[in-house]
């Protein structure tokens, strides 16, 4: 083995690096002022610079969809998007999908149907289907299959994913109850220092994509609060 010494050795010039360029971009609702090299992809920016590891790398050249994020609402491949091309734009990643008490119906439905097995492709599917449901509240199964055709999954055979997206669409339209049998929903501790509902709704709006239905999200939060407030009862 050979280690590189720092002393007494003539070094080749540094691998040529371009100067950093300022970048202003909104990520999951937070405006960020950054400086990046021009050869930084959005995927690298998210994972390496911002530690937003939810966005995955599956091929790094646009063949698999694992790195899908939303750029100004549209699902795009972050591995084929230069970070600098996002100047002034809004990026949403899986970390931006509402969780907790306002759990997004997609997260709920993916667990219901088993639409994630290993979970590695899932953030990409969530981003693609989040955009789909914002644009098409009542998608047919064929429209769903078409929309996710750029996201490869190796575990499920896709059926459970199509089922989940269909189910989430129904939840968003209020046609299907949410948070049914959600693990832990019966066991959630009572909220500590509970925020007034108004504050929660505002938080949510900040994180929701333009055009996302908000009335449904509201009902999710109500449901979650209800179950959260129920003390666990030992069943006699």
């Amino acid at each position: 083995m050979t280690s590189a010494d720092t002393d007494g050795k003539v070094r080749l010039p540094v691998a040529r690096r371009a100067a950093l360029v300022p970048l202003s971009v909104t990520i999951n609702g937070d405006r960020r002022q950054l400086a990046v090299p021009p050869n930084r992809t959005l995927l690298e920016l998210l994972r390496y610079d911002l530690d937003l590891f939810g966005t995955k790398q599956g091929c790094d050249k646009g063949d698999c969809g694992a790195c899908t994020v939303r750029l100004d609402g549209a699902p795009i491949l972050s591995c084929l998007t230069l970070a600098l091309e996002c100047e002034g734009k809004c990026v949403l990643t899986v970390e931006g999908l509402p969780g907790g008490a306002e759990l997004h119906p997609l997260l709920d439905s993916f667990d219901r149907t088993g639409a994630a097995q290993c979970g590695f492709c899932t953030p990409g599917f969530l981003m693609t289907s989040w955009a789909l449901l914002d644009e098409t509240p009542r998608p047919t199964r064929d429209e769903i299959r078409q929309a996710i055709a750029g996201n490869l999954c190796r575990c499920t055979g896709y059926k459970a994913i199509v089922d989940a997206i269909e189910l989430a669409a129904k939840m968003l339209r209020g046609e299907e109850p949410r948070l049914i049998g959600l693990p832990g929903s019966a066991n959630l501790p009572p909220p500590i220092g509970t925020l007034p509902t108004g504050a929660t709704a505002k938080d949510k709006d900040k994180r929701t994509a333009p055009g996302a239905g908000s009335s449904a999200s509201q009902s999710a939060s109500q449901l979650a609060n209800q179950s959260a407030n129920q003390p666990e009862e030992p069943k006699p």
């Binding site: 371009a18 050869n39 690298e44």
Partner: peptide, 12 residues
């Protein structure tokens, strides 16, 4: 990663 080579970027 398949690193991109170094270049300069212009946004007219």
């Amino acid at each position: 990663m398949l690193p991109l080579p170094v270049f300069q970027h212009h946004s007219p």
